[in-house]
Design a binder for these strands. Structure first.
Length: 484
RNA sequence: GCGCCCUUCGUCUAUCGGUUAGGACGACAGCCUUUCACGUUGUAAAGACGGGUUCGACUCCCGUAGGGCGCACCA
């Protein structure tokens, strides 16, 4: 509709960056939304700006308070902080109405008296004739005086009919939408409530948003919204439409794959820092960098490096990253994460009850061995089970097999040696047991495995000497005695 | 149906006309080793297809195929 030069585009060089995350509260914070929020947050934070949060709750039928809470909780857990209070879009309806009428006054909008039934008929006919489905402009230039009585009109935006709207998108490049493909959208419903495209423009303008970063599913909306900005003679924010995230099979995310709320990822034992790292690398990159801190993300993140094509969600890679962060996290910090995680997982709350100061110290001591083997907090919790086990331990199948005749004999032999250990530390115990193995011509494995079985009830665990030390002399000897 | 967009190893991606097309996850193999892991070394693995433009195309243009998104008094 106008050449790029005539469009007033917000310039980030002079104004401080203001981004916003604007979810509609019709469900939880899903993974795509989480990434959008992450991008908005990282971009603002990296430019000394701020990210605002706006709840797009103009659809009163589908918006719920539960969803609002879930989204806020999800963002908090992700570590994405927004500036100030979350804005309720619905609460700003008066202002939206005001602008709708201003548009009317400016001649950029008009009353339309078509009933929903007529509109549906219009759509069906267009479909049957294989024509584009669009409002035909019946009331665009018609005298409102000829309006049928008793019909509450809607207000439609008077969209340009010729030319094109050009979106200069940071991710998508130059996108041209012909005006003929955009019909006159409803901006105010017959019940007097504003619709999305109007509300978004008014809110983004009023909130001083300089950069809009959202999913590509809004790309066409961007063109309509630009037309409203221009009709109001407002500055158009910088636009960035990021590609969508698909399921592992390439199809749209469904409940079967990852269309879960971030709280589900929390329950699966993923760390926020790992999720941030993973999500950042989905559709965005910084050379060959794969693992980077959130601080680095903030420093590096830029709109120009965002890709154009949709990406698939890969749980395996997320797990790898999560394992990396678990391994490299300081033990006390990891313990804090584990304790914070327990209330959110299966069997966690019950376990939490068993954790007193003494048990905490024990877990902390076992953590170096445990964290090498866990990709999620769930696995970490599971692998720590031997610490909580009550005597006599229940053996799993593999542990039972290890404690056959041969195993039990080996066990009895080493128990004698252990009983005489002067010093109950992993290093001392290891020297002792290795000497014992050598003396008896046994491979270490022949002794270590039965020990592991008797001590943990399983066939896999951290290094066996660490297990002995963590469990302590009395508990270790007790568990061993139960099996010989 | 109409419009807009996308297409590099299985996956996430680097490359911004000249590279042996790089990295990561995963896979496979070796090493390490008391189990499982970690770690480490190495191997296999990609420009959807067809035309152009160019001295030279993954990179630019056109077409084909496949995929995504949008087309509500939803957001």
């Amino acid at each position: 509709m106008s050449s790029p030069e005539s469009i007033r585009v917000s310039s980030s060089s002079t104004t401080p960056v203001v981004t916003r995350f604007a979810p509609s509260p019709t469900g939880f914070l899903h993974i795509g939304g989480a990434r959008t929020a992450l991008f908005n947050w990282a971009y603002a934070k990296g430019r000394g700006g701020k990210m605002l949060l706006r709840i797009e709750d103009t659809d009163r039928e589908r918006s719920t308070e539960v969803a609002v809470t879930a989204i806020l909780d999800g963002m908090t857990w992700m570590g994405l902080h927004w500036e100030g209070e979350a804005v309720s879009q619905h609460g700003r309806a008066d202002r939206h109405r005001e602008i709708a009428h201003e548009l009317l006054k400016r001649g950029n909008a008009y009353y339309c008296y078509c009933s929903p039934g007529e509109l549906t008929a219009m759509r069906e006919q267009a479909e049957a004739e294989k024509r584009p489905i669009r409002y035909d402009g019946t009331w665009r230039d018609r005298d409102p005086a000829s309006a049928p009585p008793g019909i509450a009109p809607v207000i439609r935006f008077r969209s340009p009919q010729t030319g094109e709207t050009v979106i200069h998108d940071n991710a998508q490049g130059r996108v041209v939408i012909p005006s003929k493909d955009l019909d006159d959208l409803i901006i105010l419903r017959s019940d007097g409530n504003p619709t999305y495209n109007l509300s978004v423009v008014v809110d983004d303008h009023d909130m001083g948003v300089t950069h809009i970063i959202r999913g590509v599913d809004h790309l066409t909306n961007a063109a309509r919204q630009m037309q409203i900005y221009m009709a109001m003679d407002w500055l158009v924010p910088s636009m960035t439409h990021v590609p969508l995230i698909n399921g592992p099979d390439g199809a749209k995310l469904s409940k079967r794959h990852g269309a879960l709320g971030v709280e589900a990822y929390r329950e699966m034992g993923y760390l926020p820092v790992a999720l941030r790292n993973y999500l950042a690398r989905l559709g965005w990159s910084h050379g060959d960098d794969e693992i980077f801190s959130t601080e680095q993300l903030v420093e590096w993140f830029d709109l120009g490096n965002i890709g154009k094509s949709a990406s698939r969600f890969d749980f395996v890679k997320l797990a790898n990253l999560n394992g990396h962060y678990i391994r490299h996290m300081p033990d006390d910090e990891l313990l804090a994460n584990l304790l914070a995680f327990l209330p959110h997982c299966d069997g966690g709350p019950a376990l939490l009850l068993q954790i007193d100061d003494e048990m905490q110290a024990k877990i902390l001591k076992a953590l170096p061995g445990l964290k090498e083997r866990a990709k999620t907090l769930v696995e970490l919790k599971t692998s720590a089970a031997y610490l909580f086990a009550k005597r006599p331990l229940t053996m799993n199948d593999k542990a039972r097999a290890l404690l056959d005749d041969e195993g039990t004999v080996a066990l009895a032999g080493v128990v004698q040696v252990l009983k005489s250990a002067p010093d109950w530390t992993a290093a001392a115990l290891e020297a002792l047991v290795k000497q014992h193995a050598e003396d008896n011509g046994l491979k270490l494995g022949k002794i270590a495995q039965p020990l592991r079985a008797a001590l943990t009830g399983t066939s896999t665990s951290p290094g066996i000497f660490d297990v002995l030390e963590v469990l302590g002399r009395d508990e270790s000897l007790g568990r061993l005695g139960d099996q010989v």
